[in-house]
C-alpha cells in the first residue's frame, strides 16, 4: 500500500508543480517566437552570401537543435526509467517521442526547402541532413516498438532499451556519417550557419531557439498531463470492474 502511494505521489507532485508553470511556459514561448520572428524576418539583415534565403535558418536550426535535444531527453528519461524504475520517467519518454519526431520532420522539410536555392536541388545527402534523417528513423523506431505490444508496459520497457541503444550508438552513427560525407564531398557545399555568424542574426536565432525549446516543454507537459489522466482513468475503471458485483459471479 505504501509503495502504491509512493508510485502515485510522484506523478501527483509533478502535476502540482508543472500545471501552474504551464501558462508561463506558453507565454514565454509566444514572446520568444514573436520577437524572434520580428527580428528574424524584419530587423536582421539578409545574409551577404545567401540573401534572404538564410532567414530559413531561424526555423530550421532551432527545430534541428530541439530534435536532437529531444532525443537526449528521451534517452535520459529512459535511463532513469531503467535504473530507478521511476514511473514518471516512462511517461516523459513516451510523450517526448512524437514531439521530437515532429520537430525532426520540420528540420528535414525546412532543410530541403533551404537547400533548393542554395544547392539547386531539393535534396543533397549532406552530413547534417543525413544525420537528421537518421534521427527521424530512431524516433519512428522507438514509437513503433512502443505501440507494438498488447500490454502497454511491455512496449514501454522494450522501447526504453531501444532508446538507450540508440543513444549509445548515435555518436558513432554521427561520426560515421560525417566521415562518410568528407569521403564523398559533394561538388558544391554550403555550410549552414557556420561558426562565424553575424550578431544581428544570432539574436533572432537564439530567440527562436528559446521559443522552440519552451514550446517543446509546453507540449511535453500537456501530453504528460493527458497520459497521467489516461492512466488514472484506466486504474479507476479497473477498480470499478473489480468491485462490481458482476465480477463475483
Amino acid at each position: 500500500m505504501a509503495k502504491a502511494l509512493h508510485r502515485l505521489a510522484n506523478p501527483a507532485r509533478f502535476l502540482r508543480i508543472a500545471s501552474p508553470l504551464l501558462p508561463w511556459i506558453a507565454a514565454g514561448a509566444a514572446v520568444c517566437m514573436g520577437l524572434g520572428l520580428w527580428f528574424g524576418l524584419v530587423e536582421s539583415p539578409p545574409d551577404y552570401q545567401q540573401g534572404d534565403a538564410a532567414r530559413i535558418m531561424y526555423v530550421h536550426v532551432p527545430a534541428a537543435w530541439n530534435a536532437l535535444a529531444g532525443y537526449a531527453g528521451l534517452a535520459i528519461a529512459s535511463a532513469i526509467a531503467l535504473v530507478w524504475r521511476h514511473p514518471l520517467a516512462l511517461v516523459a519518454a513516451r510523450c517526448i517521442a512524437p514531439i521530437g519526431a515532429c520537430f525532426t520532420v520540420i528540420a528535414i522539410a525546412t532543410g530541403s526547402i533551404w537547400g533548393h536555392p542554395m544547392w539547386g536541388t531539393w535534396w543533397v545527402w549532406d552530413a547534417r541532413l543525413t544525420s537528421v534523417v537518421v534521427l527521424l528513423f530512431l524516433y519512428l523506431g522507438y514509437i513503433a516498438l512502443l505501440h507494438a505490444f498488447d500490454e502497454q508496459e511491455t512496449g514501454e520497457r522494450a522501447a526504453t532499451v531501444l532508446a538507450l541503444i540508440g543513444a549509445v550508438n548515435l555518436p558513432v552513427i554521427k561520426f560515421s556519417v560525417d566521415w562518410w560525407n568528407t569521403l564523398h564531398q559533394p561538388a558544391s557545399i554550403l555550410r549552414f550557419g557556420g561558426p562565424s555568424i553575424d550578431p544581428a542574426m544570432l539574436l533572432p536565432l537564439m530567440l527562436m531557439a528559446g521559443g522552440f525549446t519552451l514550446l517543446f516543454a509546453y507540449l511535453v507537459i500537456i501530453r504528460m498531463q493527458t497520459e497521467l489522466a489516461r492512466r488514472r482513468v484506466m486504474a479507476l475503471r479497473r477498480t470499478a470492474l473489480a468491485m462490481s458485483p458482476a465480477s463475483d459471479a
Partner: peptide, 10 residues
C-alpha cells in the same frame, strides 16, 4: 528490421 537498420549505418 526497422529498429535495427538505422543502428547498422556505421
Amino acid at each position: 528490421a526497422l529498429i535495427v537498420l538505422p543502428q547498422t549505418i556505421p
